Computed example of a mutant assay.
Amino acid sequence: MNKLATVLLTTPIVIAAPYAAAAQAQLHPAQIQLQQNIESVLKIARNDNLSDQQKIRQIEHYADNYLDYQRIAALAVGLPWRQFSPKQKTDFIAAFKEMMIAMYSRSALLGASTTKVKLLPKLVDNGRNRIDVFTEVQTKNGNRYEVSYQLYKTGSAYKLYNIRVDGVSMVTVYRNQFNDLIKQKGIDGTISTVRAKGLKKADAIKD
């Protein structure tokens, strides 16, 4: 199974060893939040009293607090985003979110018990309220990948706007598809294609 954007949904689902209180005190607030996200959603993913659909919806509801779908969608489209009307932007964001959940949530749940993640001490402050937090993801076959989560602070929380897996950017992979679609089908045709879940997965990690 290949996955890049899967990390978007599995970030809080993968198994991670909890940090001791002393170690947590030395972490950046963005790292602490990511660790808390991992533990919170892992609890949902491992709840045997919930159906897969119930788990997906609870995870989605939780993730809504920490994922900036509007910024992810705008970055994934790129320059053509300026040509979208307000209604087209709203429709595209909703369709893009539903497409990603449909594409990756099932494999995310399946990977919850086999994928491992380790929070790395590496941290990059990009300025302009942007920060990268890094983890190492290990798949069930033992392959290891460095995953960076690009975040910005709003209020007391850090929101995710992109993911890079071994340097491969999720929004860049999707941008290539969207640029082709917009040229071929226009904006409304692109929204319809996304609504119909007609895009390919953004693949970068192999189990």
Rank of each mutant, 00 (worst) to 15 (best):
M1N: 06
N2M: 08
L4N: 13
T6Q: 09
T6K: 07
L8T: 03
T11D: 15
P12D: 10
P12H: 05
V14M: 14
V14G: 04
A16M: 13
A17L: 05
A20N: 00
A20T: 02
A22G: 02
Q26F: 05
H28L: 04
H28N: 11
Q35G: 08
Q35F: 04
N37I: 06
I38A: 08
E39S: 03
S40E: 11
V41N: 12
V41T: 15
K43E: 15
R46K: 08
L50A: 07
S51W: 02
D52V: 03
Q54A: 14
I56H: 08
E60R: 04
A63E: 12
N65S: 11
N65A: 10
Y66M: 06
D68I: 06
D68K: 03
Y69G: 10
R71H: 09
A73K: 01
L75I: 01
L79T: 02
P80T: 00
P80R: 00
W81S: 05
W81D: 11
R82S: 06
R82A: 09
R82L: 13
F84V: 09
F84I: 07
Q88I: 05
K89D: 04
D91Q: 04
D91H: 00
A94R: 03
A94Y: 00
F96Q: 00
F96P: 03
M100H: 08
M100W: 05
A102L: 11
M103C: 10
Y104W: 05
S107A: 11
L109C: 13
G111D: 12
G111C: 09
G111E: 12
A112V: 05
A112T: 04
S113D: 14
S113Q: 13
S113M: 08
T115L: 13
T115C: 14
K116E: 13
V117F: 06
L119P: 03
L120F: 00
K122S: 14
K122A: 05
L123T: 00
V124E: 15
V124I: 12
I131M: 10
I131T: 10
T135C: 10
T139F: 03
T139S: 14
K140E: 14
N141Q: 13
N143I: 03
R144C: 12
R144E: 14
E146T: 09
S148K: 11
Q150P: 13
Y152V: 05
Y152N: 07
Y152R: 01
K153R: 09
T154G: 15
T154D: 13
S156N: 12
A157V: 12
K159W: 08
N162G: 03
N162V: 09
N162W: 04
R164V: 08
V165G: 11
M170P: 09
M170L: 15
V171W: 04
V171R: 08
V171D: 12
T172Q: 15
N176L: 12
Q177T: 06
D180L: 06
I182G: 06
I182F: 08
K183L: 09
Q184D: 14
Q184N: 14
K185D: 15
I187D: 13
D188F: 02
D188M: 02
G189A: 01
T190S: 10
T190E: 14
V194G: 10
K197N: 04
G198A: 08
K200I: 06
K200P: 13
K201V: 05
A202V: 09
D203N: 08
D203P: 06
I205N: 08
K206M: 14
